[in-house]
Design a protein around this nucleic acid. Structure first.
Lengths: 139, 139
DNA sequence: CAGCATCCCCATCGATACTG
DNA sequence: CAGTATCGATGGGGATGCTG
């Protein structure tokens, strides 16, 4: 079993372990990886989580901050995140009603893996783009 | 600016920074986060990367290991990963031709963030499932 | 064995319009 | 302001069959 530079031993073991059981095809939600990956794959979830990092945000504020997201998708994504316990939803019954979304503790904890991921993405984006150009040139 | 427990300071800063620029809607590939996230979101890419963690694998071996992936998607995903420079493809011109896929150094480095992610998923899957049940009960 | 080609479905997402 | 409702397009992805 060869291994290169990896500095995350415990996390790495989890990964190996996951590679072994490779998920239950009949019940995808039973496999933590697939379950979480489904959410991560959702075009907007991570962007929303990131947008909430500095602090609580209202619906419209979120929409402006994420940029090109429709109200439909924002609502949908927020619901899912709330259901998963990653964000909380607080309604203030003012005259024009306002709703504030915030990261829960669980959501906060999710930021760590996300940060590691985006950090990797940021550091290696150039290499990836270079690899693509090289590949396209060969092909 | 409130912050909870986060232990990843440098990575965290990248995240904040990303939250600020929130991507170029017109050119998604220009934003590292969205670019990488697109791949991560691909149903099979991470599973394949994980399957390659213990060492190089042949096509059929990969298909068996991942489980329920069609040859079509396996081929497609492998191509993309190869293009991105995460895996290498070595062809052995034997009588029945065999092709061996392996992680490149870049691919190896990608395992770290992935491991952190799956580790988080594994540790918090119960809480997420619990949150869902609670949410569904309330609704 | 490895993988390309074809057909087709359906989940995801966008756009628009309407409501409390 | 914060959604909901509806329609429609796009393409990811499954099933099957064929080739070198």
């Amino acid at each position: 079993m060869t291994r290169a530079q990896s500095g995350n031993r415990p996390a790495f073991d989890t990964l190996i372990q996951m590679a072994a059981l490779h998920g239950a095809p009949d019940n995808p939600a039973a496999c933590p990886i697939r379950d979480v990956l489904d959410r991560v794959g959702q075009k907007w979830t991570l962007l929303i989580l990131i947008a909430l990092t500095p602090g609580p945000r209202r619906f419209s504020a979120l929409q402006r901050q994420v940029g090109d997201i429709s109200k439909r998708m924002l609502t949908q994504s927020l619901r899912q995140l709330e259901r998963d316990g990653l964000i909380s939803r607080q309604v203030y019954p003012t005259k024009p009603p306002s709703v504030e979304y915030a990261l829960t503790e669980l959501g906060q904890s999710a930021l760590d893996p996300i940060a590691v991921l985006t950090d990797w993405a940021d550091r290696n984006h150039d290499r990836i783009r270079a690899a693509r150009t090289a590949f396209d040139a060969t092909a």
